[in-house]
Design a protein around this nucleic acid. Structure first.
Lengths: 236, 236
DNA sequence: GAACAACTGTGTCCATCAGACACTGTGTAT
DNA sequence: ATACACAGTGTCTGATGGACACAGTTGTTC
């Protein structure tokens, strides 16, 4: 559980700056095969099933062989992410920043739906690979014609991405927050039992609505951004 | 690393439904002392330093003694959360839903600042204890006089909470996104080296701004909610 | 008061994890 | 031909969460 967390080494790995050796036996595989195998395990059995042992077994090699390609497990995770994120969407064919951002959110959500373990580990300070980096680049393009400052554009796309991330679990099939998962029904019973202490929560029966939690939040965020944009746009 | 994840058992623990035994030796301590010790470790050395061994040592007992009070580590985490979350804010003295939500966001942010490990583990489907449950109850009170539906109110407060959670790390002292952490400067160098592939990101020099990332997002969210609220409010 | 049953904390054991290190074998450069 | 750099393997360590048997303690029941 050490996970060296050496961002410089991770960067060299992800951006192809590792020097290829000239002498010695040919490697039996490469780092992308490791990444693919690990992604396969994570997709099938969850991220917690991904161990050096398990991934090595998937490739038919011993655990320690992986350490020739990857310094530690943190690097394994890094290449997994880079392998699992798909191609960033091209938003140039869409008119208007709002439609672009909506499409971006949809694409992001779809990518994460294919790899449910992805959103949780892509949070926080981290070195991204080139494929992943293309995503925020794409998102920024949506706001290019906007009067927002560079800083605000960055904040705006993080706001959208973080919202999709947070609502990801609740947005999976047709489930909704407070009604999905196995903890939710128990939580509901507890609230009803303690309705005197938590009247607002207890009476919130998760009324079915036309929009999902994810849609509601995205809509609100975009409305808020629109407000900021029109405010900065000189009228006339 | 099993973590039984039995939400029913967790609920019994957190809501005080565990039957107290009548016979046998008196317990040397109780579950709240375990929780406090674990919180102390997490605050000082991070969540990853919290192991059964470590917490038991803190109390001067063996690891296995803890299992008399807690079924597994998942329950340890659960009582840690309940012990660490402070008292939910009372928003009744504040006028207007927007000011109330702003205060709520501030309080939430402050609570998490005292326990930086808290936001990451409080995400997702989970059984909450009574102290923690008081928080969303408090947040809902901010929107009570609002024309939003129950569902929308829930979605709204989750939107705010999730935003605070996501921007928490970046909001710590005076740091900003893309400039905090040890990965950020490396990421920056990579972007400059590959400015042709990522022109928008590369030229985004994280221009200093008056507002923080957290403030910008919260402002946008509240603007969006205001839009939804005024839209539903019959004019005249 | 004695016997019993419930309960306590302890000691021992196991599987699994990430990772260090020594080793044998292999291919290339000299 | 020989030396060297590299490959994958086997073995070991320390930490993890947790199962289980055990001896000691205490309230309940006779």
């Amino acid at each position: 559980m050490a996970a060296n967390e050496d961002p410089k080494a991770v960067a060299e790995l992800l951006w192809g700056l590792r020097k290829a050796p000239s002498r010695g036996p040919r490697p039996a595989f490469d780092v992308t095969q490791i990444a693919d195998a690990a992604v396969k395990v994570a997709d099938a059995e969850g991220l917690e099933a991904v161990s050096m042992q398990r991934v090595a077994a998937e490739l038919g090699f011993t655990k320690m062989a992986l350490y020739r390609y990857v310094n530690d497990k943190a690097e394994l995770i890094a290449v997994m992410i880079e392998a699992a994120v798909g191609a960033a969407p091209d938003l140039s064919g869409i008119a208007g920043w709002r439609a672009k951002l909506e499409e971006y959110a949809r694409e992001l959500s779809a990518a994460w739906r294919h790899h449910p373990w992805l959103p949780s580990i892509t949070a926080g300070d981290r070195v991204m690979g080139p494929r992943e980096t293309a995503w925020p680049e794409s998102a920024l393009s949506a706001l290019a014609d906007t009067p927002l400052t560079e800083r605000e554009r960055l904040d705006a796309i993080m706001l959208v991405s973080n919202h999709i991330r947070a609502t990801h679990a609740a947005a999976i099939p047709g489930t909704q927050t407070w009604t999905s998962g196995e903890a939710a029904p128990i939580m509901r019973d507890l609230l009803l039992l303690n309705a005197d202490r938590f009247p607002l929560l207890a009476t919130t029966h998760a009324t079915p609505s036309a929009t999902t939690t994810q849609e509601f939040g995205l809509h609100a965020i975009l409305d808020g951004l629109e407000h900021a944009i029109t405010q900065r746009t000189p009228k006339g």
